[in-house]
């Protein structure tokens, strides 16, 4: 492919509390591609997501992370976000005192450094909330405070759509959601793919969220190592047979 990789992970080894979790992991993501990262519990999926985003609790022992041609292995998290990376959290944090709308506005301003036209911002926020079937009153509510699990995940996808990153890492975005909420969240992700030609790394161990999404590559992570990669059909195989054959191998 002539196009430069958006993300290139080379020989990445990562430890948490001095315990090595990821072992010499390699991954390439091109612009607009959707990658699915699957694996049993404790395989290191969230570790990879957190490491890519620069969580200081995850220590890179070896290897490199290149994003858009820049070595970001030692770059701070806020600078990675400003460069165009995004991570939706498995357990989004509650922030009393700052509304969802104000938080997103702060984030956009921090990333762009430019003033925000309030009317245009409000319109975009409202239409995006509508797309996600979110009650508009949530915009003025304290960020994630008293939100149901489903509303928290929708608020994460709302941030994804409002911040327009080039690469989004979705960490178990579908966990704990009912069927309708999964469908809505999935619609939001699809919109991100279309609107931004955004690249995705979807971390999941269920396949519900993938049903309406086009998947380019599927990777299976077991005990911190990528043991298999394939196209979207690998998702269906895992859905039918589970991870057993990968664990045995």
């Amino acid at each position: 492919m002539s196009e430069q990789n958006l993300l290139q992970v080379s020989d990445l080894s990562v430890s948490v509390d001095e315990m090595q979790i990821l072992h010499k992991l390699n991954l390439k993501v091109n612009p607009g591609e959707t990658h699915v990262l699957m694996g049993p519990n404790g395989a290191g999926k969230s570790t990879l997501g957190n490491t890519l985003m620069g969580n200081p609790n995850y220590v890179v022992n070896e290897g490199k992370i290149i994003f858009d041609g820049q070595d970001i292995t030692n770059l701070s998290t806020d600078k990675r976000a400003a460069a165009g990376m995004f991570m939706s959290f498995q357990n989004p944090l509650e922030v009393p005192g700052i509304s969802l709308s104000a938080f997103i506005r702060n984030a956009i301003h921090s990333q762009t450094g430019k003033p925000i036209k309030l009317l245009a911002y409000k319109k975009l926020l409202e239409s995006t909330m509508e797309l996600l079937n979110m009650d508009p009153s949530y915009a003025d509510r304290d960020l994630n405070v008293g939100f149901s699990g489903g509303e928290k995940k929708k608020a994460e996808i709302l941030q994804l759509l409002m911040l327009s990153p080039r690469l989004a890492i979705l960490d178990e975005t579908d966990s704990g959601l009912d069927v309708d909420a999964v469908r809505t969240v999935s619609k939001g992700i699809e919109e991100y793919q279309k609107r931004e030609n955004g690249a995705l790394i979807i971390i999941t161990h269920s396949t519900k969220i993938l049903e309406s999404l086009h998947v380019d590559h599927t990777h299976v992570l077991v005990k911190g190592e990528l043991v298999a990669s394939g196209d979207g059909s690998l998702v269906e195989e895992i859905n039918a047979n589970g991870f057993e054959r990968f664990i045995k191998d």
Partner: peptide
């Protein structure tokens, strides 16, 4: 640390 990471993951630096 979790709160700081959440904010930084949205592009907001530590001081802000």
């Amino acid at each position: 640390d979790d709160m700081l990471f959440y904010m930084e993951a949205r592009g907001i630096d530590k001081e802000t």
